[in-house]
Amino acid sequence: MVNINFTVNGKPYEISIDENMRLIDVLRDELGLIGTKEGCGEGECGACTIIMDGETVNSCLVMGFQADGSNIVTIEGLEKDGQLHPVQRAYMEAGAVQCGFCIPGMVLSTKALLDKNPSPSDEEIREGISGNLCRCTGYNKMLIATKKAIEYMKGE
């Protein structure tokens, strides 16, 4: 067992975990944050994307102990005071969600992109979400959603 201290969605945690636990299992099984999904489990699909110290990572490829001292945002951390994050709202309004399995990771990749680059080109948006596979939507409504989110975030 190993003790880790980290912040998840603004809340500090001090927990004891198995050394061989992956971060996704820490989030889902120890903290109950099941919004983070496991798809391929080997870093190809992006379903388990979270934001760790401002960077998107595949939480299936990060060991739990590596999260010690980090600041993590999961899909559960985007809503503020009962209000959806502009990216979440835009995804809903644009019809960018079909089966929904890729969406937590997709939304976090979109947020991370816009945090770094508030007015990306179409190509930059496509690149920004290219690590997240989606079988349903063909991605184009996600492009529309991202542009909507840009407008909402400018208005904030």
């Binding site: 391929c40 080997e42 190809e44 699909c45 948006i125 496509r126 690149e127 979400i129 290219s130 690590g131 997240n132 596979l133 989606c134 079988r135 063909g138 991605y139 184009n140 996600m142 492009l143």
Partner: peptide
Amino acid sequence: NRFSKYLIPTAMDM
């Protein structure tokens, strides 16, 4: 049977 060996379109391919 891996996404690294069986390629499906990403947002950049669409």
